[in-house]
Simulated scan of single mutants.
Amino acid sequence: MSRTAQNQGFTCENCTTSVMPLSNGSYRNHCPTCLCSKHVDIRPGDRASACHGMMRPQHVERRRGKGLVLVHRCVACGFVRPNRVADDPVQGDNIDAIITLMASGR
């Protein structure tokens, strides 16, 4: 699958936000408003998962070389995947939602 085909906008199935693709050369894999994702990959970018369950943010970690990382868990199958926080001038992640998640201690 080409990089352009992987970096597509979408409508968040959790909060219905219209999400634009990232403009910084990276991929968007979660909603910048509610921070939810969707279980569509087995390996990042392959779109090979048959699950398609909602991935809810569980907690935030700071990783060397990657910055803040959201850790998502699929509500359907329990799959866990870390995703970098999107730093995008057009539609960046909701910092208030990230701070709330960090403060919750989950």
Rank of each mutant, 00 (worst) to 15 (best):
G92W: 10
G65C: 12
S23R: 10
P32N: 10
R28H: 11
C77A: 01
C15A: 03
K38T: 00
D88T: 08
N14A: 05
R73K: 03
N94E: 13
M102E: 06
R62I: 13
A97H: 14
R43W: 13
G67Y: 12
H59W: 09
S26P: 09
A76W: 13
V90N: 02
V90H: 09
D88M: 10
M20F: 15
N24L: 12
C31A: 12
A50P: 06
D46L: 09
A5G: 12
H39L: 01
H52M: 12
D96P: 15
I98R: 06
V75S: 09
T4F: 07
V90M: 03
S37T: 02
S37Y: 06
F79K: 04
Q8K: 15
N83C: 08
T100F: 15
P82T: 07
N29I: 00
S26A: 06
R73T: 04
D93W: 01
Q6E: 00
H72G: 00
C15V: 13
T16D: 02
T16I: 03
V85G: 07
F79L: 04
T33S: 08
T11Y: 02
S104L: 14
G45Y: 01
L70W: 09
R28N: 11
P89Y: 07
G45P: 01
V75F: 06
D46K: 14
C15P: 07
I42V: 11
S23V: 14
V75H: 05
P82I: 10
L68G: 10
G92Y: 11
G53W: 06
P57R: 05
N83Q: 08
I95L: 13
G78S: 04
G45Q: 02
M102R: 15
R81Q: 06
K38V: 04
T4G: 09
P21I: 05
D87N: 13
M102W: 15
H52Q: 10
P21Q: 08
V40I: 15
A76Q: 03
I42M: 10
P32Y: 01
L68Y: 11
F10S: 00
E61T: 08
A97S: 09
A103Q: 15
R63L: 08
I95W: 15
N83L: 00
M54P: 08
K66N: 11
R3L: 03
N29G: 05
G67T: 12
R106I: 15
K66C: 07
P21C: 02
L70N: 04
C12E: 00
E13A: 03
C74D: 03
V19N: 00
V69L: 04
M102T: 15
P57H: 09
P44W: 13
Q8N: 05
E13I: 04
S49Y: 06
A50I: 12
S37H: 01
H72Q: 00
C51P: 05
M1P: 12
I98W: 12
Y27I: 01
R84L: 07
A97I: 13
